[in-house]
Design a binder for these strands. Structure first.
Lengths: 221, 221
DNA sequence: ATTACTAAGTTCCGAGTAC
DNA sequence: TGTACTCGGAACTTAGTAA
């Protein structure tokens, strides 16, 4: 249990995030890390040596920098934490999300049809979306509980001459228990926290005859 | 970023686990927590007050004990960590493919050595393959996730007087993290969906001392 | 440029105790 | 039983450097 209080875990976590994967090798320097974390280069140096001593990372330091990778013990420590958090958020999960239809201004139509997004929707979600979103008003807490139980899918952003399109976090779901669809969370845009956008291969509003205020049931895919 | 180093996060994590859920109220005492974490009652008391001051928990302390619950900010902090870990482990799943060696009948040897294929392997994959394939048994879903993230390379088919050789879809990969290789999907032949063929410039089975049933790690090139 | 040692400065912890 | 204050010593961090 004491494990939980050691901030070594948090340091390890940071390294894994920096490596952008738990199996990668991170080429960096103590100075770089120290700037990111806003602690001294000396402390980083010491902490890395401690993690190495404790068998959580392997590290080679030289006058040209250091390369770091997590050992299987280190990965296991993070995985334990992951499982604990998963249990925490999933047990508390709602298997179903209730929402009320909001007729929006149709902005969704535009960004969904951008080719760079479209391609990813097809690859990562498994369908070519209808060019329009179904907007649902939901309980914020319920939404959080619902999506926390689902694997998140990342749709990359991109830039054009005129503007940039941010990353989108997506979750595969079923609408009314049967229609495959996806909840989208655009990361940049100032998004109302109690509203979600849903896309599917077909026109959801038409298929289910939905009007402003109608209730919709979204469940796990 | 500094967030990562604050062990407050770990303390918060502990409290959530103790509450057995992120929305519950934990009735306890500083002494109880101090025993679990093997730190002093005084430190627990102080840390709780700090978390309260920072808006991560709400807490009421009295001579009869204390009751603690996470605030939405506190829950959000844990959720962020959960998402980051999820991404870390989830993405890693798609970056690495685990397979088990299947010793086949050596049919691969034949078609790989056809000059029309050979030429394309050299041009498109960047190596002249060893005349033999390494067959791996894999999880079908894992395989799908793995290759979907890779650019696919198309090797054209051709015909001889006797028979025709179909297109091959290929993906550049690394075997055991270092050996450049390629996964091949012959398009025509009735291919088991949970088996892949891998070629490299050298004899993979020999280089890595592989026998039937041995585990092999394939990662992105 | 690096890493990492030493020494000094700072923060943190917990025993004793008040309430 | 509780929580939480004080304060001395332990632990940690970092500036200055060496290599």
């Amino acid at each position: 249990m004491t494990l939980f209080l050691k901030d070594d875990t948090q340091f390890l976590f940071f390294l894994a995030v920096q490596s952008d994967g738990v199996h990668s090798v991170l080429k960096t320097s103590t100075a770089k890390i120290s700037k990111e974390l806003e602690i001294s280069q000396q402390t980083v140096s010491r902490k890395l040596r401690e993690l190495k001593r404790d068998g959580l990372i392997s590290m080679d330091a030289s006058p040209s920098g250091c390369s770091i990778s997590l050992t299987s013990d280190g990965i296991e420590l993070l995985r334990l934490q992951f499982f604990a958090l998963q249990k925490l958020f999933q047990q508390n999960k709602n298997r179903v999300l209730q929402g009320k239809v909001k007729i929006g201004l149709g902005e969704g139509r535009y960004y969904i049809s951008r080719p760079f997004y479209l391609k990813q929707f097809k690859n990562l979600l498994g369908f070519k979306p209808f060019f329009g979103t179904l907007n649902l008003e939901v309980e914020q807490a319920e939404l959080a509980g619902f999506v926390s139980a689902l694997p998140s899918i990342e749709i990359s952003g991109f830039e054009t001459d005129e503007r940039s399109f941010g990353k989108i976090r997506a979750f595969k779901v079923l609408v009314e228990g049967k229609q495959p669809a996806a909840i989208l969370f655009p990361e940049r845009t100032a998004h109302k926290k109690n509203e979600v956008e849903i896309i599917a291969s077909i026109n959801l509003r038409k298929k289910f005859g939905l009007n402003e205020g109608n209730k919709v049931r979204v469940s796990r895919a």
